[in-house]
């Protein structure tokens, strides 16, 4: 293709958008609506997963040792635990640290009455997991390790979080499938509306001796631009909405705000922007190329 032809094609792609104002608006609205729903949904899921993940990170298993255990054995047990695949982090808490923590958390100023550490035997390992669903496997292993007196686990939290995670997974798949089906239906409908106008035009071009490529290119450029606009509008809307919704939720349910750790908009947009643009442009490209292809056989 010569440069002047490329320039012409580009110009025609833009003018097509204005020539078929209603078709362009309908297409942009359809793509925008679908990507807007997708964006909102993504923002909700991402935040949910973040909350679950934060909660998961707090889940730990604590092991206490047999009385009179040697420091060497404690170190040995520590190494063994660290080697397990379930484990992300092992923290040793000495008896003094345990007592300090207990004091600040529960006793405050009353702690001054104690002269000795009442928790002399309370040194422990706090084990953090890669994935809460692995907790029971780890506990079974720990029960078989010699030198361990007691294992404290948080059974309820672990199973609950595993459940929530699975639920989010299923809901995500379901909603994405519905959104996809709706988008395809709406877009194919919109595309059909635009066909009759183009059919005549394409026929004329082909009679004069235009190649398929020459006929198709402006329509493809038009489709890409429409897809791009259809992606940018919902991104802008979600950007503006996001903070307002979070402020509203936090203001209304203040007690939740400590539990709910919302993601910054930048984190959301790092994924949402490329996905929206690729999906929007992809829909525009495929929509226009298939529409035109149907009418090229003159």
């Amino acid at each position: 293709m010569k440069i002047r032809t490329f320039g012409y094609t580009l110009k025609q792609g833009f003018s097509n958008i204005f020539r078929n104002k209603w078709f362009s608006l309908a297409s942009i609205a359809t793509i925008s609506a679908c990507l807007f729903l997708f964006g909102i949904f993504y923002a909700i899921v991402a935040n949910f997963q973040n909350i679950v993940k934060t909660a998961e990170e707090g889940v730990s298993v604590t092991v206490y040792f047999d009385e009179g255990i040697s420091d060497e054995r404690i170190a040995e047990i520590g190494e063994m635990i660290e080697k397990r695949v379930e484990v992300s982090k092992v923290v040793y808490v000495s008896a003094e640290e345990a007592w300090e923590g207990f004091k600040t958390e529960y006793l405050g100023e009353y702690a001054d009455g104690f002269t000795e550490n009442p928790l002399a035997n309370s040194m422990n390992y706090q084990i953090y997991l890669n994935d809460v669903s692995m907790q029971s496997a780890l506990v079974t292993y720990l029960e078989s390790v010699e030198g361990i007196r007691q294992i404290n686990k948080s059974e309820v939290t672990a199973t609950m979080l595993t459940g929530i995670n699975a639920l989010i997974g299923y809901i995500s798949i379901g909603i994405i499938a519905i959104l996809l089906a709706v988008s395809i239906f709406l877009i194919s409908n919109t595309v059909t509306i635009g066909i009759s106008v183009r059919k005549e035009e394409i026929n004329i071009m082909k009679y004069i001796g235009a190649t398929d490529f020459f006929v198709r290119s402006p329509f493809v450029i038009e489709g890409i631009i429409i897809g791009l606009i259809g992606a940018v509008i919902p991104l802008g809307a979600i950007y503006l909405l996001y903070h307002q919704v979070i402020e509203f939720v936090v203001g209304r349910y203040a007690m939740l705000s400590q539990l709910l750790n919302f993601l910054p908009i930048e984190t959301i947009f790092k994924v949402l922007t490329p996905v929206s643009v690729i999906v929007g442009v992809g829909i525009g490209f495929l929509g226009s190329i298939t529409t035109v292809r149907k009418h090229l056989h003159v």
Partner: peptide, 10 residues
């Protein structure tokens, strides 16, 4: 348009 198809110089 007919001339653009055959890439006639502007």
């Amino acid at each position: 348009f007919a001339q653009r198809i055959i890439e006639t110089p502007t």
